[in-house]
Simulated assay, not measured.
Amino acid sequence: MSPAEGEWKLSYGANGVHPGASFTFGTLRSGYYLLEPHEIAYGDTDAGDTPLPRADGIRFGQDFKAAATITFEVGVDAVDDAFTQQGRHGANLDRLSVMGQAWDAEALRLRFATPATLSTMQGGRARRFYGRPRKWAPAASKLTRQGYTPVVATFACQDDTAYDDVGQNVRIDIQPPPHRGLVGPLTTPLTMTGESSGKVAGDVTVGGNKPTWPVITFHGPITQPVCEVVGRWKASLNLTLGAGERVVIDTRPWARTVLRNGNASVAGLLYRGTPRLEDMRLPIGRQDFVLRGTDTTGTAYMTVAWRDAYAYL
């Protein structure tokens, strides 16, 4: 569920004894309201420029952008939680402890390449960032005993992109092309190699204003499955999936995995013609997805999931 207008929600899963979090802040009703508007600081560009030898000017190279950082100034307010000063003081310490535990994110810190989700609603648009909570600094204040403490907190993003909080997901079933008959000589067992009817351009639209990362899932039974974004790229695997088996190609920056049945890496079975995972982004606009492969049952299918991406909220 997306946060309410003006709210932010930090969420991540548990890890063993370390609890997860679903911490909402940003408005008066949450008890953790923003003292100043949030600030998104985009990282500097790592320019690949080189000077021209014995000449004026430079030669522009490949440039890479650092990730963004979001900073919050939060008022932790428990003034109305009790009638006595001691009660307000204790309530404020409790609220600080709740925020501190969520921002500490020990369940994430002990896991490799696992981001938290920071969701928000701004101007009626639900967006999310992926990253990890970093700095958390309660200010030393005499007001703490009265039930109020200001806090500065930062969130380090995985990249410089805001994603739609509502994900998109399309299913493409494999359907062998029509045949007018069989031509001998025939051998058993008989198989048919074909492609899906696809999702023609116009049926699927990738929104946002930046290309985005898909998660492609092949569901067996199928041999040598291929996902094609028509006119863009193809992802092909040299393997056979049985009924009930699946392979997930997760191109997102924090994943970049090709897993069979959720645990076995089969990245080495990608054909050489398949782009690198970092290059398998979905372009903006109307797209045509096609599933290809060999399936004797006609029941194989694939799903393509993504979130529309934006350069800003």
Rank of each mutant, 00 (worst) to 15 (best):
H18L: 02
S265V: 04
C157Y: 01
L239V: 07
R29K: 15
G202K: 05
P221M: 08
P185H: 07
I58N: 04
D81G: 02
R281Q: 13
P53V: 11
V74G: 09
W103A: 00
G181S: 04
F112W: 02
N263G: 02
T50Y: 05
D94N: 08
D279W: 12
L291F: 14
A156M: 08
S22T: 08
N261R: 01
I40P: 02
P253W: 04
P275N: 08
E39G: 04
I249N: 01
P19E: 09
P177S: 11
D295Y: 11
T45W: 06
N238Q: 14
A235Q: 03
S119M: 15
K65L: 06
G31R: 13
E73G: 00
D203Q: 10
G181D: 03
G273A: 06
L190P: 06
R272T: 10
A68D: 13
F112E: 08
G220T: 07
E278W: 02
R59H: 03
V17Y: 01
C157V: 11
Y271E: 04
G26P: 03
F112Q: 05
L93C: 07
G75P: 02
Y12E: 14
G123C: 08
R125Q: 12
P275Q: 05
Y148V: 05
L28D: 14
Y32A: 13
D81P: 01
G20A: 08
H179S: 07
A4D: 15
L182I: 12
N92Q: 14
P225S: 10
A267Q: 08
E195D: 03
A267G: 00
R292Y: 12
P221V: 02
I58R: 05
G6K: 11
T191W: 11
G61T: 10
A139T: 03
T297Y: 15
R109Q: 07
R276M: 14
G184I: 11
D49W: 01
A116G: 12
Q146F: 03
A139G: 01
V98F: 01
M302T: 09
V247G: 05
I40K: 00
G285N: 13
E7W: 05
D56F: 09
W254G: 00
G75K: 05
L237G: 09
A116C: 10
V183H: 07
Q146Y: 03
A305Q: 06
L110E: 10
P283E: 06
E228P: 00
D203E: 14
T27P: 01
G298H: 12
N92H: 12
T161K: 12
A4H: 13
T274N: 08
A156Q: 11
A156L: 07
T297N: 08
T240S: 15
A311G: 14
E278N: 04
D288H: 15
F218N: 00
F60D: 10
W136F: 15
G285V: 08
P115L: 10
S265F: 05
A305L: 10
R134T: 03
A116S: 13
L291K: 02
G208P: 01
L52N: 09
W254Y: 07
Q287E: 15
H179W: 00
G61D: 10
